[in-house]
Design a protein around this nucleic acid. Structure first.
Length: 105
DNA sequence: CGATTGACGCAGA
DNA sequence: ATCTGCGCCAATC
């Protein structure tokens, strides 16, 4: 069995530009439907190390969950540069959420 | 090996 | 619609 972390890393790397995934989605696709917090811990610990597109990960409300103001702003800028639109502080997940395999709906 | 961490999710008020 | 509190669970310390 591959670790949840490595699995989550793969899922995150599969998020295409201009789309976002929630922590819960990533956890579900990594084998732990309730493991959203593990995704959070993972990104907090090694987002930069693994070269992950960490900016494409937001919470279930479509809001950037980072507390660090600098990183929070950075994520918003990166997403906007990829074409993601913000409705105030929120992203319209109905339009920008990415679901592997659900793309033909 | 036990406790802590953690950028969450959701039900209830 | 907003706010509060509790539960989750693997990796790290």
């Amino acid at each position: 069995m591959e670790t949840f972390t490595l699995n989550a890393i793969r899922v995150i790397q599969n998020i295409p530009p201009g789309k976002v995934m929630t922590y819960g989605q990533i956890a579900a696709h990594s084998g732990s439907p309730r493991g959203a917090r593990q995704v959070a811990r993972l990104l907090h610990s090694m987002s930069a190390k693994y070269g992950l597109p960490w900016h494409r990960v937001v919470n279930a409300a479509g809001v950037i969950s980072i507390q660090d103001k600098e990183h929070h702003l950075m994520q918003k800028e990166l997403l906007q540069s990829e074409g993601v639109e913000f409705s105030g502080a929120k992203i319209d997940l109905r339009r920008f959420r990415f679901d592997p395999g659900e793309d033909r709906i």
